[in-house]
């Protein structure tokens, strides 16, 4: 709009399209390899979808299957192997449990605190708020080591608790909700008190409903961060595959992979990445709002 008449619209599209090709390239590679047979991957042929000629799974033949029983379309082979070679469903389930628990606990802890900081008068309020502002400076990944030592001391490594505990407190969530609650009119709260509501039910029945948009953005922020997180799970989950989150599962797959398993590995990657990408496509504006939430500090 600013300088549209100076550089032609066409040139801008050209530059952006070149950029877009580089951005999309790995997604293309991932999806394409998840469709192809090992031979096609090695020789780099078959276009995007591969020829989809029936391929024989040699391992299946070795353990005694007949050649007919062991013939698959490459795409079927890759995706079925993704689930059968490693307990991918279990990993996905763990991912869901961990991300949802983290979000729920964050809200249960942050919302009442944010309400108190925004709307209640009490001694030490400024001090607590100062503490929140200070804690905003600390990236949790940076203090992973002492956290790990603490968890190890109480014997909690290799558990769901280890995956969840460090994230139960979101100072960012407190800060965000407090800013939001400041804008809620006091009259609304006074009216609720007149009706005899307890402070606790004010938080959940009056404040929570007014905060839904902010809460939704925060939910996206939190879920995306923890579904994709690799560093923390890598540290606290050592060996026990039953507790692997999706990125850990994929990493393990890579460690084990021999040459012929590129296809299933790419299928696994696709399965892990797809839920968030699809959700993002469906609700783009909300997602961008959520992810860039930290920009509002």
């Amino acid at each position: 709009m600013i300088q549209a008449h100076h550089i032609g619209e066409g040139w801008k599209h050209l530059v952006l399209i070149l950029g877009a090709i580089i951005v999309i390239l790995p997604f293309y590679v991932m999806l394409s390899y998840s469709f192809k047979s090992p031979g096609e991957i090695d020789r780099n042929e078959g276009g995007f979808f591969g020829a989809q000629e029936l391929m024989v799974d040699e391992r299946c033949v070795v353990v005694g299957g007949s050649r007919e029983d062991c013939s698959f379309l490459p795409v079927v082979f890759n995706y079925s192997k993704a689930f059968s070679e490693a307990p991918l469903l279990r990993y996905l389930f763990n991912g869901v449990v961990v991300t949802l628990s983290i979000f729920l606990i964050q809200v249960i802890v942050a919302l009442p605190c944010a309400y108190a900081l925004a709307k209640l008068r009490f001694k030490g309020r400024e001090f607590v708020f100062g503490m929140v502002l200070f804690c905003l400076l600390i990236p949790v990944h940076a203090i992973a080591l002492p956290l790990y030592i603490m968890l190890a001391k109480v014997g909690l490594t290799n558990s769901y608790a280890a995956l969840i505990i460090p994230w139960t407190i979101s100072v960012f969530g407190i800060f965000l909700m407090r800013q939001f609650f400041m804008t809620v009119p006091d009259d609304l709260i006074d009216a609720a008190r007149m009706d005899g509501m307890s402070e606790l039910s004010i938080v959940w029945k009056v404040m929570l409903p007014t905060a839904v948009p902010a809460l939704l953005a925060f939910a996206i922020f939190s879920v995306v961060a923890h579904w994709n997180d690799y560093f923390w799970p890598r540290i606290v989950i050592t060996g026990n595959r039953d507790l692997f989150t999706p990125p850990l599962g994929l990493r393990e797959f890579k460690g084990d992979a021999d040459g012929s398993f590129y296809g299933p590995m790419m299928a696994t990657a696709t399965i892990i990445v797809t839920p968030l990408i699809v959700a993002f496509m469906l609700a783009q504006r909300r997602f961008i709002e959520g992810i860039t939430l930290s920009g509002m500090k």
């Binding site: 950029g19 877009a20 951005v23 999309i24 790995p26 997604f27 590679v29 991932m30 995306v224 579904w227 994709n228 690799y230 999706p246 990125p247 994929l250 990493r251 890579k254 590995m265 790419m266 990657a269 892990i272 990445v273 968030l276 990408i277 993002f280 496509m281 783009q284 997602f287 961008i288 992810i291």
Partner: peptide, 17 residues
């Protein structure tokens, strides 16, 4: 949308790709 895709995708998965 396109430029934002990598932000959403698990970095570990995309690194392997």
């Amino acid at each position: 949308t396109i430029f934002f895709l990598p932000v959403m995708a698990a970095l570990l998965a995309m690194a392997i790709v």
